[in-house]
Amino acid sequence: MKIISNPFELKEQLKGQKGSVGFVPTMGALHEGHLELIKNAKRENDFVVVSIFVNPTQFLEGEDLDKYPRRDEADKIICELAGVDILFFPSAQDIYANDEVKLEAPNVRGYILEGFTRPGHFSGVLTVVLKLLNIVSPAKAYFGKKDAQQLHLITLMVKQLFMSVEIVAVDTVRDKDGLAQSSRNVYLTPSQREAALKIPTALYSGAKLVSQGVVSVDEIRSKMLHLLSPLKVGYVAIVNRDFEPIKQIEIGNTIILIEALSGETRLLDNIWL
């Protein structure tokens, strides 16, 4: 496995690469969810690039940029054992200039849900993903369904900017207790983790109601909110896959999303129906 930090060096390295390139962009602190992305990339491509970059432009003032989990040496070992061909490990100075061209998230879908409480967050996400895709020029890039709004906006960006890359959505990986894997889970104390299990419980309950014929979004959301108590809930949202609000469940075109705090740790999860 080669480790490269300079974008131009990586572009040069990939220029003569034969076969398809699969790309997995990450912020490090790798877990089984990231490994699932890598496994998919390896299965579907001849060559795999993983990036590790904690992107400063998607963190708002007062958020956890400085304390975001970093396990650089362990991550390098994980990537090598997973059979990654190139690990792209840039610094902020490698990615950003002093006077940047800016990419703005959509005015509506970029400023609802996550974007409502974190205005500008998705502009930072889309900017860095665009840069990384331009550097690597992969055939396919892999993203987890757990960050569903992010996945939707990246897919939208690729479509609207006429980019030649396929965005592949990979199912959420969960621990045995049902909690969606996240780098931020390390922040949770045992009691906070126990409380956090209310999130997958509420999602499964919502899905069960649908299987029993309940289609009213208001009824499902109300029952889920009751199950989430006493967590501090940012939102329980039920939308179609274009992230438009709906009043009734549409099987095959619905996502139920939760954002909630357990302790001070902000957790996201969702279920696709």
Rank of each mutant, 00 (worst) to 15 (best):
D242N: 13
K208A: 11
P56C: 10
I86D: 03
E194Y: 12
A237N: 05
V49L: 08
L65E: 11
A105Y: 02
A260M: 10
G213A: 04
F122E: 02
V21G: 04
D94H: 12
D64H: 05
L103P: 04
F88S: 07
R70L: 00
S229F: 13
D46P: 05
T26P: 13
S191G: 01
D64Q: 02
D85N: 15
L65A: 10
L130H: 15
V236L: 02
E100Q: 13
K39L: 10
S91K: 13
K67V: 13
F8Q: 14
L87S: 03
R241H: 12
F243L: 15
G213E: 00
P106I: 09
G124D: 01
Q93C: 10
G22P: 07
R184F: 12
A237D: 04
G252P: 09
P7W: 11
L225A: 01
G28L: 05
T265G: 10
T201N: 14
R71S: 15
T172H: 11
V214P: 01
I256R: 00
L203S: 06
I246E: 00
L87C: 04
V54E: 07
I38N: 01
N185G: 11
L188Q: 08
I238Y: 00
L267A: 10
Q93I: 10
V21C: 10
D269R: 05
E244H: 12
A74Y: 15
L30A: 09
N98F: 12
F116N: 11
E32R: 14
N6Y: 02
R118S: 11
S182I: 06
E73R: 08
R266I: 10
A41D: 07
L87T: 04
I77W: 06
L227F: 01
Q248L: 06
W272A: 02
L197P: 06
V136H: 01
N185C: 08
W272M: 07
G144M: 10
L179E: 04
Q181E: 14
L65H: 04
I167E: 05
V125R: 09
H31C: 11
Q93A: 15
A29L: 05
M163C: 08
Y142T: 03
S262N: 08
V48M: 07
S262Q: 07
T201R: 12
R118L: 13
Y204I: 06
S182T: 04
F53A: 03
D99G: 05
A97H: 13
I3N: 05
G28M: 02
L257K: 02
V173I: 14
L133P: 05
S183P: 10
F143Y: 12
F59L: 09
N240F: 00
A141Y: 03
I251T: 13
P190K: 06
V186L: 11
G28V: 05
A97E: 14
G213R: 00
I95R: 04
I86H: 03
G252Q: 08
A105K: 03
P119F: 01
P69I: 04
D66P: 12
A169H: 02
N55Y: 03
N107L: 13
S51R: 08
L60Q: 15
L65C: 08
A196E: 03
T155M: 15
K198S: 11
E9H: 13
D64W: 07
